[in-house]
């Protein structure tokens, strides 16, 4: 299948998440427009602004001349503040109008996957940068260290927890030889969804290194399987692989035990013997063996379940405490 078609399928699979992000951008743009409109209104007449804010229900019922001074409708924005807010508004409107292309990127041949993803997220993350710029401008706060131009790029390392919670999904086209998936680990936070459309020869199980209890990981050649990624509330990554690669899904919502979360549909028997670009044969074999080992564990656990009639071995109190501490420490990306 041509890569364009697979990109379209990937975008379709994450359309809900994408639409949610775009609607948030649209809402933010409207809020910022409201700030600008209000300022225009208040310059003309504070009561006019108040009348607009209260809406028609208040018309004829509330005396605006009395109310305006009580709740302090007198502040106006300075010229510089207004200019900054206007720029942020335009950035949001540009994002709102932009099509699917802002959610896609291509890794150049021999390029760096993480760098491409980081840059793409920085581009679409301008939505967060613009919203923050409005706050900084309104309250005369200097942008924090590390922010050069929040309306040009606002990469994920600057996002706060709430922003990571509604992070934009991204579809990345990448050659198999450049698919060094482990580098994406630190980006898989909040609700970040990454779909990789892989072209050309690829390692058999490159995504296996990303399997951790809270992250959805899907490696498949069937676009319909991407729906599990979209349905997952947490972070996730999926790769649409060329034929011959391993096929598996790791969905945290399916259960606590690895045997519940991991479903290996196809495991290649033949181990790679040749390097693929900078990815050594040893590394490829290592990944494949890791998946095979996980598969064996899953099968063993399933057998135990049948024999004992129970699921994953129950965790004792010390285990639960350790698990909680690890979760609290948030080692993601370390």
């Amino acid at each position: 299948m041509p890569s364009e078609d697979r990109i379209a399928q990937a975008l379709e699979a994450i359309s809900d998440t994408k639409d949610f992000f775009v609607s948030s951008v649209a809402m933010s743009a409207e809020e910022v427009r409201g700030v600008l409109e209000r300022e225009r209104g208040v310059n003309e007449n504070p009561q006019v602004r108040l009348a607009h804010e209260l809406g028609p229900f208040a018309a004829g019922r509330i005396d605006l001349e009395r109310l305006a001074p009580v709740i302090g409708v007198n502040e106006t924005l300075g010229e510089e503040t207004r200019r900054k807010i206007q720029s942020a508004f335009e950035a949001l409107m540009d994002l709102k109008k932009a099509g699917d292309e802002i959610f896609t990127a291509k890794v150049p041949l021999d390029g760096y996957l993480r760098g491409t993803v980081f840059a793409a997220l920085g581009r679409v993350g301008v939505a967060f940068g613009a919203a923050r710029s409005v706050e900084w401008a309104l309250h005369d706060i200097a942008p924090p260290e590390g922010v050069e131009d929040a309306l040009e790029r606002f990469p994920p390392n600057l996002w706060n927890r709430a922003e990571r919670g509604c992070s934009p999904p991204i579809v990345i086209e990448v050659e198999g030889q450049d698919l060094r998936a482990a580098s994406l680990g630190e980006l898989l936070e909040g609700s970040q969804k990454i779909v990789l459309v892989v072209n050309g020869p690829a390692a058999p199980a490159p995504l296996v290194r990303l399997i951790t209890p809270g992250v959805t990981v899907i490696q498949t050649d069937d676009p319909t399987q991407l729906s599990a990624l979209a349905a997952s509330p947490g972070p996730g990554v999926a790769a649409l692989m060329p034929e011959g690669a391993a096929k598996f899904t790791h969905v945290p919502g399916e259960g606590k035990g690895l045997n519940e979360r991991l479903n290996v549909e196809y495991l290649p028997e033949k181990e790679p013997k040749r390097a693929l670009g900078a990815i050594s044969a040893f590394q490829q074999v290592e990944e494949l063996r890791q998946l095979a080992s996980m598969t064996a564990s899953v099968e063993a656990m399933a057998t135990m379940e049948v024999e004992s009639g129970s699921g994953a071995p129950p965790m004792d109190e010390a285990g639960q405490l350790a698990s909680w501490l690890i979760h609290q420490a948030n080692f993601t990306g370390v």
Partner: peptide
Amino acid sequence: LDPSWVAAPPDLSP
């Protein structure tokens, strides 16, 4: 619809 119905972001100034 009137954009003014949507209140300004909350005041987070110092």
